[in-house]
Write a protein that binds this DNA or RNA. Structure first.
Lengths: 344, 344
DNA sequence: CGTTAGCACTCTTTGTGGTTGAGTGCCAAC
DNA sequence: GTTGGCACTCAACCACAAAGAGTGCTAACG
């Protein structure tokens, strides 16, 4: 509990780094053989015993070496001196992939997680922005059948949302086209929630003397918003299979647990966006996520956005034994590249 | 190789059914204890030896019981006497799920695979129809930025495709709206390939004296089709985790292999739609799929469609040791329910 | 001639005990 | 404070035995 001496810190760092590389519990003799220490294994044992006492290290069983606890990793990450630079090969791959596709929001996000899954042995993850908060460029109503109408909404970033709803009366496609045009002319720089607010206000004001077209557009919009586009936000994952390569997930039960969590997405989203957030970079280690199923995983995420507005977070999910010194700069780099790409 | 006697068939059937239930190799004594046989284990052993000779059964090792080969399962499926009726509970779940959603093509497909994944311990799978073969209801061009144009295409079944492309010249959204309207008026009952063919023909005919609008629409369409919407067709999977429950996939390597195949989707698609097909119901057992990674899996699929036209196949992927007598009727039922739902 | 009981044999599975080796904790000496 | 030494713990490995399931074969039976 008392402050760590420089030696304690040095040993902790060595243990963490060794463990990140080998995946095996690291013993005092292994350390003492390393050229970075001139100490005997006995001395190191004493230091390691202290670190265990303070909760930075633990042992799988009495006669095994030490492995870092979440707290140990946390200390390591917070005091990490040297980040590895992003390799030029990695930079190239990121650039190529992002430049190669259309540049629609969904495509950029997909490219981001894909590249992360390629460049790391972990899972790429990105949270999609809440569609209702996006600035809308275009709305179009398409008549499918009788009163069934498909709404196609395009955001300025090229994200597309489709919502099906039933109108109260039957309209012809011609009428719907006129409605769409009318609405688009009004659009300006509104978000979907902005539009909803506007529609509700207008309806509430209830003043007479609207022209009929406007009244009809209002009615239609109301039926549309009654449907309330439920799919508010979402996460995309790529490279789940990467996790299978790590010995810590060789246990089928543990793996099942994590994959189940991936399927649900809700809890991942909560972990990603949940924290009151805003930090450019965030590292969540093991149990810090407060998600039981994720207690053996770490997340490294960074914010991406467009024109200064944050859209979501992109990053990586892997075992707590993650190569933080390489991953942190990489995630930063990709988030940055994605933001720039979205700026167009 | 010579024809199977009635007794051989009865024994084969018993072995298959026992194995489907237990997952363990089945021995002669187990069978002789069953009330359906009045024979001693020695007699059964002789019969089983014959079946092994003919390739219907095999042994994991000399002192183990027999398990059916792909050929054994094939014989069983082809000569399966009694299908289990689809339980009323299952029918209810299918109906509820399908009635609950909007009825757009994608939603119906998603509901289908979801329900399959719920009702069976296997993976639900469905192939999406080639978008280019769908009858188009509506096309809309949305200006995103300068010459970057987003095309939104809606099929009569409510499927939506978004394609981004660059036009040769800059158009205003107003112009694009006029183009869209013009094109929609022409649409009739054309598929996307139909439209493409038409556009190319018109361009080739090269006659002068078009009105200018038509010429512009042609030019724009050409840039669009130059992009050639690559995402021709696709598959949707649900319930991959179900597979983890089966002992035959406890081996991490085998599982990795299969999950990798799932990610790629291409090979799944090939297996689904690949065969020159057309049968309402199809059962593919183990190596019959000619896909190395799928050699331990069986597929049971059925055709779904709309207005007499086949759109794709829906079904289930599971271990060759699959409960065919229950699954086959269920897949049939769901394919039928989906087709009816799509009919609207 | 089909059917059956019996028997020897094979091969996996399970358990046991011993050995090895890595690693620890503690103590006494430097 | 550091180090060497020593007793102790515990997982991992191996060899070996015993059990059990199942087979193939043969001889006898109705």
């Amino acid at each position: 509990m008392e402050a760590l001496s420089a030696r304690h810190i040095k040993v902790l760092k060595a243990v963490v780094e060794d463990y990140i590389h080998s995946g095996e519990p690291v013993g005092s003799r292994t350390l003492s053989r390393s050229p970075r220490f001139q100490l005997s294994s006995a001395t190191l044992r004493n230091v390691m015993a202290d670190l265990k006492e303070s909760g930075f290290l633990c042992q799988p069983h009495t006669s095994a070496g030490r492995i870092p606890t979440d707290l140990g990793f946390r200390f390591y990450v917070n005091n990490l001196p040297a980040f590895a630079a992003v390799s030029s090969e990695a930079r190239r791959q990121v650039r190529d992939r992002l430049a190669g596709s259309g540049g629609r929001l969904e495509e950029v996000l997909q490219d981001g997680v894909f590249t992360l899954a390629q460049l790391t042995p972990y899972v790429g993850v990105v949270s999609l922005p809440d569609f209702r908060q996006m600035v809308i460029r275009h709305i179009r109503f398409v008549k499918l059948h009788e009163r069934r109408i498909l709404t196609v909404i395009v955001s300025v970033s090229g994200a597309v949302q489709n919502v099906l709803f039933e109108s109260e009366t039957v309209f012809s496609q011609d009428q719907l086209n006129r409605f769409s045009n009318y609405l688009n002319a009004l659009l300006g720089n509104l978000t979907l929630s902005g539009i909803k607010r506007m529609v509700l206000q207008e309806m509430a004001s209830d003043k007479q003397g609207y022209d009929e077209l406007f009244a009809q557009v209002l009615a239609l919009s109301r039926s549309f918003f009654a449907q309330d586009p439920e799919q508010q936000s979402d996460v995309m994952l790529d490279g789940k299979l990467n996790l299978l390569e790590h010995p810590e997930f060789a246990d089928v039960e543990r793996m099942k647990e994590i994959f189940k969590t991936f399927e649900e997405k809700g809890s991942i989203l909560k972990i990603l966006d949940g924290a009151l957030g805003g930090e450019q970079l965030r590292v969540i280690i093991g149990a810090e996520s407060c998600c039981r199923e994720m207690r053996h995983c770490s997340l490294v995420t960074a914010e991406y956005g467009r024109e200064g507005r944050s859209l979501g977070r992109v990053g990586v999910i892997g075992p707590t034994r993650m190569d933080y010194s390489r991953i942190i700069p990489l995630v930063n780099y990709i988030a940055d590249a994605m933001s720039r790409r979205l700026q167009k």
